[in-house]
Write a protein that binds this DNA or RNA. Sequence first.
DNA 1: GGCTTATATGTCAAGAGTGACATAGTAAGA
DNA 2: TCTTACTATGTCACTCTTGACATATAAGCC
Lengths: 199, 199
Amino acid sequence: MTTLGYAILGLLSREDLSGYDLTRRMAGRVGYFWSARHSQIYPELARLEDGGYVTHSVVEQSERPDKKVYKITAEGLDDLKAWVTQPPVPRPIRDEFTLKAYSVWLADKEEAARLYREEGLRHEEQLAHYEELRAWMQGAWREDLTSTDSPEFATYATLRRGIGYEKEYAEWCRWMADSIERREPSEKRKKSKSGKNGG
Amino acid sequence: MTTLGYAILGLLSREDLSGYDLTRRMAGRVGYFWSARHSQIYPELARLEDGGYVTHSVVEQSERPDKKVYKITAEGLDDLKAWVTQPPVPRPIRDEFTLKAYSVWLADKEEAARLYREEGLRHEEQLAHYEELRAWMQGAWREDLTSTDSPEFATYATLRRGIGYEKEYAEWCRWMADSIERREPSEKRKKSKSGKNGG
DNA sequence: GGCTTATATGTCAAGAGTGACATAGTAAGA
DNA sequence: TCTTACTATGTCACTCTTGACATATAAGCC
């Protein structure tokens, strides 16, 4: 079973979906940390059905083309449950943007500063979007978020990770741009003061 | 030109290296955010040489097998410089561990808590290692780090990103484990108090 | 009727990356 | 002498992922 397979099962464990619906959810990042295109999803659904992890039924629609709606099986759910607590084989992180920083000493300063400012803005925008989502979730899912065995909690948990990720990335971009422009790194929501880590 | 090609050029812009040396550096994460195996590196070196980005000379060794030492060309360096400030096409983040969190509501609580505790420890260990490196760099490269056009600054910059990344990841794991064990998330190096972001 | 857009499902070629296989020189130790 | 380990360079089959190609229904609009 592939990781993509589990991403799909993760969605189907919450609701029955067609390949098209799955594609839209996977475009918007499943749990914000996986994605796939329809060209990968349709063949994977066939493999999942072949393996007995899902079944499908054709739903005839009058105002749209007919569709295949997929449902997770008991075996699929068991497999998914087992996978969730299995420690993943560590895969290397690949981040082209950070890799560029490794050669930033060769770059034109003005261009480099602009690059980091812009990338920082992109992450701040993503962060702002996530924060909005979080505010909405905390309002709409108040009770659900008190227990960790609700799908709402799980969605919220991955969103938290997204928020932390974007925040950290945006801060680093700001620090890079400030450094390149030879300013003191901007003081924004930072504690510092101690000095143990050698400012 | 592939991203791997630029990763290799980034290393060769600092020093001449053999495929074997490159492999060892790529195993330890180039700039901490890219990696490759020798089976990918050797063919890529051939392509780079074919494209005129690098040249090689055979160095005969008496106490070891002979080796090919690669050197970046002027064209290679120009290409690398241009690439550094080019905004990368955004590629989706894929993180299997975070994806698992999306289905954590299905999991056995005890197993899940252990998973997040252990993964958190792994990131804390990596963080501790990075912090040691940072301390060493700040001692050994004092002057070099004052200007952003030194390779030392660039190395330090990617390390900073690694530190931020691991810190954030470890914190999220801790929050997950605490939530699953139904404790109040542990208070550790956190500011809070404001409340604007809706604690 | 023709155009665009959204829904809906598929295939295929090509590239990136991995793990396994393959070969060989040299040093050190049993 | 044999084995092990490190250095050193390569190939190959396979998987994952993408972008392009392909087809079809249906609604809305001009």
